[in-house]
Structures are given as structure tokens and as C-alpha cells.
Design a protein around this nucleic acid. Sequence first.
DNA 1: CTGCGACTTGAAGTGCGATTCAAGTCAAGG
DNA 2: CCTTGACTTGAATCGCACTTCAAGTCGCAG
Lengths: 135, 135
Amino acid sequence: MSEALLDIAEVAERSGLAPSALRFYEKKGLIAPAGRNGLRRTYRPDVLDRLALVSCARSAGFTVAEIGRFLVATPGDTDLRARMAVKARELEEDIARLTRMRDGLRHAATCAHETLVECPDFKRAFAGPPQPVPR
Amino acid sequence: MSEALLDIAEVAERSGLAPSALRFYEKKGLIAPAGRNGLRRTYRPDVLDRLALVSCARSAGFTVAEIGRFLVATPGDTDLRARMAVKARELEEDIARLTRMRDGLRHAATCAHETLVECPDFKRAFAGPPQPVPR
DNA sequence: CTGCGACTTGAAGTGCGATTCAAGTCAAGG
DNA sequence: CCTTGACTTGAATCGCACTTCAAGTCGCAG
């Protein structure tokens, strides 16, 4: 009846992450096993929620270190909340850029210029404000 | 009067990229100098457009190798056009994810749960489809 | 001609996010 | 008890996008 715990292989499979990645995240403080079964890490099922969050944040461009900081955030941490607001604004810009990029690509898939660089429509999609290329 | 050409330092400054990055891009086939002044590369001004395009694409998550392929695309390259369409679709997903992330962050900046992971609103923002985390 | 300083080169180094590897440990089954 | 096979570990390696470095080369002012 105490089979509430998942072992690492199960978590890996369900989360879509490699076991090595789980150990990597653990080292970085993003997750922690509930205990061990012999040498094997065992996790509470809610680690899956956490991992979904991590994956999403990763794919949104956050570093593992940043995510670690977010995960320990408390309501009193105004400093971190400010950083989050900043991040939200950055995401806003990213979204705008990606949207332009998507439109440009869509057009490129059908336009008839010799090379993309010669296509004025395509160029327009990218001649935005001089971005310093963060990432 | 033939001062239409910019030298590498000028291009670096105007594009916001390091000279080393320009040389790197050259090695990867993304840009080419118009000529040399002694050892110094000189560029036609339109290299700046190209670099803006490169920077934008980079920040949209394309690898330098991909960008190189896009830049030499011709209308007949249906294969590449298909890849572009695929990319456009991927961007669509990225945009959706980033949008959720942004909303989650905005909420997080003001909600009052002990840790973010405990905030149901925040969780909801990320409990999307099990993303395999490309990037 | 000489020296300065800004460029040139290829090779090595950096940071991030993992993955891969060799060697070790464990529980369970024969 | 001994094998099997899935896990464990830390260390090494990888890929990407650059940056940094040592050593060399150039144009030009003096």
C-alpha cells in the first residue's frame, strides 16, 4: 500500500526526461528524491508536476539556475518577484520576435525571390529593433 | 568617394556583434566580406541587414547552421521550404508556450502561495502537453 | 625605416545543458 | 552463494556559440 513512490526509471519515462537529466536537476537543486530503495531514488508523484514546470520554463529560455531560484520563491521575496516581472516583459519581446519570425517563415515558404535576403517582405519581418541577441 | 565599404570594427559596432562573432559567422558561411584593406575585412553596408536577420533568427532559436541553410535558399528548393513550414509550426508552439509562461510569471509576481509550486494558478500555466523540451 | 596599434590567423578555452562512460552497489532469483 | 541486470557514482565528453589567446601582419605617422 505504500506504493505511492515512483522510482527513477518511472519518473524518467513519465516525464520524458532521461535519468541522467533527473540526477542533473537534483544536483542543481530543482528536484529531490523522497527517499531510496537501496541505491535507487524514489520520488513522490508530485515530482512530475515539478518536472513539467521545469521543462516548460527551460523551453521558455530560462536557465536551470534561474528555475532553481524561482522554485524556492516565497511570497515575501519581492526581489525575486521583481525579477519575474522583468522576465515576463522579456518574454513579451520574445513572443513578438517569434511571431515576426513565424510570419516571415510562412511567407518565405511561398515567395519567389532568388534568395531570402532579396525578398523585401522577408526582410521586413526581421528588420526590427537592433536586438542584442540575449539567449 | 569609394567609402561605401565598412571595415570590421564599424560593422561590429553598428551590428552590436563582436568582431570575433563576425569572423565566426564568416567561417560558417553566413556572411562574406566584400574585400580587404590590407588584412582588414571590408563589408558592403547591406551586411548589416543580413546580420540583423541572423540575430533575429538566432534569438528565435535557430542554430547558426540552420540560418546558413536558409540564407542560400532559392525558390526551387522545395525541401527547404518544407523545413521552413515545419519551423513556422514549431514557432507557433513556442509562442503558445511562451505566452503561458508569461501569464504564469505575471501571476506569480503577485500571488501569495508559500512557494510557486503550491500555487494552483501557476501550475496550471505550465501543466501543458508533455513537451519533450527541444531547444 | 621604425614603431605603434589595430587588425589578422588558427587553436584553445568557456559556459551551459546535458549525455556517456567506467566502475561500483544493490535486491532478487536460481 | 553467485549471477544478473537495473540502478548508483563522479568524471569525462559532447555540441553549440562564441570568446580569448599567442603570434603574426599590415598601414601609416613620424
